[in-house]
Each structure stands twice: as structure tokens, then as C-alpha cells.
């Protein structure tokens, strides 16, 4: 009979209506992310606050999107003077984390970093600050 399938469909809808809601009320309710989540990058520091990075440049050359820019200390080439990550261009692919021979980089579960300015998405990982100075808003790489 024509219409039986329609009634069955309505039945399904009513059945599902009585089930508990599954909607997540973000931002009132924070999602529980798995530990593997690839969100914003951060760098490990030891107790004295010295960054784990040894300025070997592996991540800078390995990044497909020229996101990372490292400046070495000329006197002490194993110390990064600045380590900027242009998160606006980052694809969160994880290649840098994987490549780092000193396991200095890691992903945090932090994803709420919307900004009004693109230049605010550039982070200095060595001291964890945001780069907001003159000329810092320009893109890395080509």
C-alpha cells in the first residue's frame, strides 16, 4: 500500500525522538578529546624553564608549509633565540612532532584560539608568547 513506508519512516522519527539527546552543548560543555588530538603546538621546557629544542632545524625543513621559523644564537648554535610558529598556516599534520630528534615539540589539546588578526596566530614557542611586533604578521616561507 502506498504510504506504508512513509508511516514507517514517521515511526522511526518518533522512536528516535524519545531517545536522549546527543548534541554536545559546546561551548558551555567542553568536549573530551583523546590524548592523541592534534591541536595547537607547544614546546617542552625543563624545570628551569629551558626549552627542550636544540635548534637542529629538522622541523623547519621538514614542515610542508613553511610554518616554523627558527633563529639560532650565533654564539651558542644549540640554543634557539626565537622559535615562531605561524599557526594560521599550520595544517596540524604532526610531521614536526614526529621528526624532532629531541622530542621537544608536542600537541596540546587546546583548540580555542580564534583571533581577529591573522598576525595574532603567530606564536613564539620558546617563551610561549604571541608575536605581535612589527613585521611579525608576514608569512613564513615562500
Amino acid at each position: 500500500m502506498f504510504g506504508q513506508g512513509l508511516l514507517k519512516g514517521l515511526g522511526i522519527t518518533f522512536q528516535r525522538l524519545r531517545r536522549p539527546t546527543e548534541t554536545q552543548l559546546y561551548p558551555y560543555q567542553q568536549p573530551v578529546l583523546p590524548a592523541t588530538s592534534r591541536m595547537f603546538l607547544a614546546m617542552y621546557h625543563d624545570e628551569a624553564g629551558v626549552p627542550a629544542c636544540k635548534a637542529c632545524m629538522t622541523c623547519q625543513t621538514g614542515c610542508p608549509d613553511h610554518v616554523i621559523r627558527i633563529e639560532k644564537d650565533t654564539e651558542n648554535p644549540k640554543v634557539p633565540l626565537s622559535f615562531t610558529v605561524n599557526s594560521g598556516r599550520c595544517t596540524f599534520c604532526g610531521i614536526c612532532v614526529e621528526l624532532c630528534p629531541f622530542s621537544a615539540l608536542h600537541f596540546t589539546g587546546d583548540f580555542e584560539r580564534a583571533t581577529y588578526l591573522k598576525s595574532d596566530l603567530i606564536y613564539k614557542l620558546v617563551d610561549g608568547s604571541r608575536a605581535t611586533g612589527e613585521g611579525e604578521g608576514e608569512r613564513h616561507g615562500r
Partner: peptide, 29 residues
């Protein structure tokens, strides 16, 4: 939208599995 939203329930669950393993919901790498 009704069938679409119902179907996306399964998609979300499977993406949860993907996220637990690969760390991302869409661009797994």
C-alpha cells in the same frame, strides 16, 4: 535533514574512532 542528521550520528562515532587513533577527525595523515 532528518535522515541526514541520523546518518551523521554514525559518521561522528566513526570519526571519534579515527580521532582516537590518528589524532584528527578529517585530515588524518
Amino acid at each position: 535533514g532528518t535522515p541526514f542528521i541520523y546518518a551523521f550520528k554514525a559518521r561522528e562515532r566513526i570519526y571519534d574512532f579515527f580521532e582516537a587513533v590518528t589524532g584528527a577527525r578529517m585530515m588524518y595523515n
